[in-house]
Amino acid sequence: MARLTLLRPVAAAARWRRPTVTLANQTNEPAQQFGTEGIKPMGRPSAVTRFFMAVVAFAERLNLTFSKVGNPPIYDKAVFPWAREIEKEWPAIRAELDKVLTRKDELPGFHELATDVSTISQDRGWKTFLLAGYGFKSEQNIKACPETWRICQKIPGLITVMFSIFEPNKHLPPHRGPYNGVLRLHLGLIVPEPRDKLGIRVEKEVYRWQEGEAVIFDDAFEHEAWNKTDKVRVVLFVDFRKPLRFPANLMNWLLLNVAVFTPFIREGMDNQKAWEKKFYEEAEALRNR
């Protein structure tokens, strides 16, 4: 269940083809584009979807105008003082990740949970271990990673928490998240060498993950990510509400809460629950041998 993923609010409705739109703002910051050339649009048109996407387009313009933190592709972490607190506790998160990775090959490919992710990833090179997203909580995954969950409660407006796992030579092509009312944090947990062989580009800025270091960015800008090393790369992947002034904050709250009831979000939740049932039943069977 992301933005480009199954747990992003607008991804739930974005299966309707929307033309590329430039969202300009009144600063010198880069303009945001809705849509990415060469990426197959999501399908499933309907009157309800078209109406929802029109509301989203209006909300995105409000979000740019009423942002409390500006609209850069990658943020200065000083804008979010809590980011340092997350970084300080990264060893506890890494310790829980190490336990999760003992069954790495059984973790789901992202596209297996969020079917629309197949527009940018169709193999199991991008795996995930989800704790929560858009009102859904995986109680068993949270039980497996209680420190990770505790630490993430320090993030205001928390929406999604998961481990994002890139297998060797995995590359996500350029794409744009469907909604700019949410920001994303990556906390480096396993970052193999050489570091110049992996990274993420957001608009024109390239960031190279570091273990114990957080980066906060707006995935409403075109971005791509790659791991060209021969080892696994893992980050803590968190989405949180963008700090906005009235009336954008109210509109944003409404959209994010309505998204929980969309068919795509519910489909993703069902896929997650089905995977969990199998995953933990197999673990129990092994313990009882």
Rank of each mutant, 00 (worst) to 15 (best):
A13C: 14
F221D: 04
G38Q: 13
V202L: 06
F52H: 10
F51H: 07
R184Y: 11
R84V: 13
G125R: 09
A57K: 07
R150N: 09
S118C: 04
M1T: 04
L7Y: 05
N249D: 13
D270F: 10
V202A: 05
G109S: 13
Y75I: 09
L236W: 01
R17K: 15
I142F: 02
I142S: 05
E267W: 14
L172G: 03
L113C: 11
Q153W: 08
L131V: 09
G38Y: 12
T102K: 02
T229K: 03
T160P: 11
P192K: 04
F246I: 11
K277S: 06
L64S: 10
N288V: 08
K137V: 15
E193H: 09
Y75S: 08
E106H: 01
G70Y: 07
R50E: 15
F110L: 09
E139T: 13
R17Y: 15
T22A: 12
E96V: 00
R266L: 06
L23Y: 14
A78M: 06
H171L: 07
D239M: 00
A259K: 01
D196H: 13
A83V: 08
K77Q: 06
A78R: 05
P72S: 00
S67A: 07
R289N: 03
I151M: 04
P146F: 09
F240D: 05
F240K: 00
S67M: 06
A83E: 02
R61C: 06
G268K: 00
E147D: 08
E284R: 08
W209F: 03
S67D: 03
A78Q: 06
P45N: 03
R176N: 12
P73K: 01
E213G: 01
R176H: 03
D98W: 04
L286M: 06
F51T: 13
E222W: 01
Y179P: 11
F58Q: 12
M269T: 08
M1D: 10
R18M: 08
C152W: 03
M1F: 09
F246W: 15
N252S: 15
V79A: 12
R124M: 13
T65D: 12
S67F: 05
T115N: 08
G181F: 10
Q153I: 05
G109V: 08
E112V: 02
L23A: 02
T65N: 14
E147M: 07
F166S: 12
H171T: 13
G133Q: 06
G133K: 00
R150C: 12
A31F: 09
W149F: 10
E193V: 05
F129V: 12
K143R: 02
L23G: 02
Q140H: 10
A220D: 09
I159D: 11
T36W: 02
D270P: 13
T27Q: 11
A114T: 09
P146T: 07
E37P: 10
L255A: 02
V69Q: 01
Y179Q: 04
A12I: 08
I159W: 03
F163Q: 05
F221R: 00
P192D: 11
L6A: 05
P45M: 02
G157L: 00
E224T: 03
L254C: 00
P168R: 03
L7I: 05
E147H: 10
I200F: 04
